[in-house]
Design a protein around this nucleic acid. Structure first.
Lengths: 342, 342
DNA sequence: CTCGCCCGTTAAAACGATTTACATGACGAT
DNA sequence: ATCGTCATGTAAATCGTTTTAACGGGCGAG
């Protein structure tokens, strides 16, 4: 309610001084006495700068948009939390853009749905954009962001857009899972991979392959199968893989969602987990311990990835400069019931 | 990039006309020819109004803040999706405020964390506030919102703040779960309730109690136990309840999270689910079918609650007017393996 | 004694869209 | 022919903050 001018009047100085005091401007000098008086007035009146006016003047909205598929997915939720925390640290707020809402929306009503993200990006409503690699935003948003030169960070994969890419320690995670299975005596290990062509898919397969290679074990393409990150796809893919290479005794899954599908599908087909087949999956989720068979997972630094994405936008934090940041927090193997001795 | 004035110049009219055309102002009349020329210029130049300028002039930011505990929780995620969809429909964007991030943050660095939500509410940065009943926002935010007269909607419980409250069909959900268990022949049914004193807790217990009452079954307080919404608390509470009333054969859980705890805890103690004890829980989550014992649940209209919260803020949609909206979408019973015949 | 200079402060001009109050024009009516 | 009126369009003020350019006063140096 109180404006800058009100504070100025109350403390008998010009608005300019109040602005300087409020922003802690160090360049111009202000008498200690004046500063004290202004600060007191600010406190007493509970003055807070009007964001719209600040934005207009500074051409900075103070908002960062995070576009993910489905905020309901705990993996994305964790990223959002990290991004939110980091954004708060630099005085910015996070705008949620869940692309799944669009589908729900359009399914609901046939009329044209206004795309909030388009308006936001087009109208200088956001200072930066964090995108999920595969489809966090529409082409229109991308085009607009390019025209407006809105800084853009892409998560998980280098798909040729954005100023920077933030990656997880994908290869290492896959190495961890694979190494664990080898340690349990498994020698015929399959890989249930995510969608082909994406950076993280490649890195995880590489982790699996190189670990097997280092132990002199077989790692040919016939033991890799791709599936989108859904339960049903995981079940199908696992069935396909085992039909093709029946001698496999363990599975490294590049994502826990299809891993759950694999676990359920294989169980239904009469395989016992882990007696007949061990499953280790990348991404730990809170429910992992409570699944039909508690899942052995590799916890990824998702929170840190959210933090890094915001830091990349802000141009600060470690890894400053390069176009690619790989989160250096170690992935963590969490052994549960789904993996056992060969 | 192009401003209103640019479009005006290009289409050889005054800025006022462009503004009217852009906003579809019907009050003043504009020649069809002029309108056409302006619309074409807008399209060709890809003009989009600057949000900051609009906000400043109109005192409306176009943002709504949604404050929840933990966006990672699929229950809140679903609410967020609904709110996001409804907000998009009225041209507003959703700002995420996850209170868990503050904890994570402060745990991380000792320095004072700027509270984004405080700045936002204090600086007219949001047009409305949607709060999780138990602690979605700090007292400071609440005080500020009151002073600024920021419209406020509280979810799930009437805790004496906010202009409106949005509730789920809580009693009915509990009736559904309890009725299902009675239908399976259970007569001694306990209630694992959520935190006491909250509207939804009361309503769910009432649903349990009245359903038992209607069937002439016992429903005294010794069969009710309260637990916060965590796995560990659920395990403890279930153990407590069974120690107290050992003859219970079924459990209605007011929240699926402690229900999972109950399931795990009881299993560890040698009870078999559902053979020794059946469990039905309120809130369906995507993982429910894949838990150690697939959980029988009651799916709540969470998406709809998110929609309703935004509609309440906007003063539109059904239920317009009253201070309390109860979502009228029916809860849905989903029978799985955790409930069996008595 | 006066000229310049630094210091703290202030006045005023942005930022871009909206809207009120006013101007211009045409046209019909008297 | 003159006035009134309605239909279009325009000029200018406004929202609140930031920032640049200017301003007065005090003081040291010439």
């Amino acid at each position: 309610m109180p404006r800058l001018a009100d504070v100025a009047k109350a403390s008998k100085v010009s608005p300019a001084i109040v602005s300087r005091v409020a922003n802690g401007d160090r360049s111009l000098k202000i008498t200690a006495e004046t500063r004290r008086r202004v600060e007191q007035a600010i406190r007493e009146m509970g003055y807070r700068p009007n964001r719209a006016a600040q934005s207009l003047r500074s051409a900075q909205s103070g908002f960062i948009a995070l576009a993910v598929h489905d905020i309901t997915n705990p993996v994305y939720g964790e990223i959002a939390r990290g991004a939110g925390a980091a954004a708060a640290r630099i005085g910015k707020a996070l705008v949620m853009s869940d692309s799944s809402e669009h589908e729900a929306e359009t399914a609901h009503l046939p009329e044209t749905v206004p795309d909030t993200l388009v308006d936001l990006v087009g109208g200088h409503g956001v200072d930066g954009l964090i995108l999920q690699a595969n489809g966090g935003a529409s082409d229109q948003v991308l085009a607009l962001a390019a025209r407006e030169k809105t800084p853009m960070v892409v998560l998980q994969a280098d798909i040729g857009i954005g100023d920077q890419v933030v990656l997880l320690p994908d290869e290492q995670a896959a190495r961890l899972a694979t190494g664990h299975l080898i340690g349990l005596g498994h020698t015929r290990i399959g890989c249930l991979a995510t969608n082909p062509g994406l950076t993280f898919t490649g890195a995880r397969i590489a982790g699996w392959r190189r670990t097997l290679e280092a132990h002199g074990l077989r790692h040919d393409d016939t033991r890799v199968v791709h599936a989108p990150a859904t339960i049903a796809a995981g079940a199908d893919a696992a069935a396909t893989l085992l039909a093709r290479s029946g001698d496999i005794t363990a599975l490294v899954c590049c994502n826990i969602v299809p891993a759950i599908g694999a676990m359920m599908g294989l169980t239904e087909r009469g395989y016992r987990v882990p007696d007949d087949i061990s499953i280790a999956a990348i991404h730990d989720i809170p429910m992992a311990p409570f699944l039909k068979v508690a899942m052995t997972t590799v916890a990824m630094p998702l929170f840190e990835m959210g933090v890094a994405a915001v830091e990349a936008l802000a141009g600060c934090g470690p890894g400053d400069g390069g176009p690619v940041r790989i989160i250096d927090t170690e992935p963590r193997l969490i052994v549960r019931a789904s993996t056992g001795r060969a």
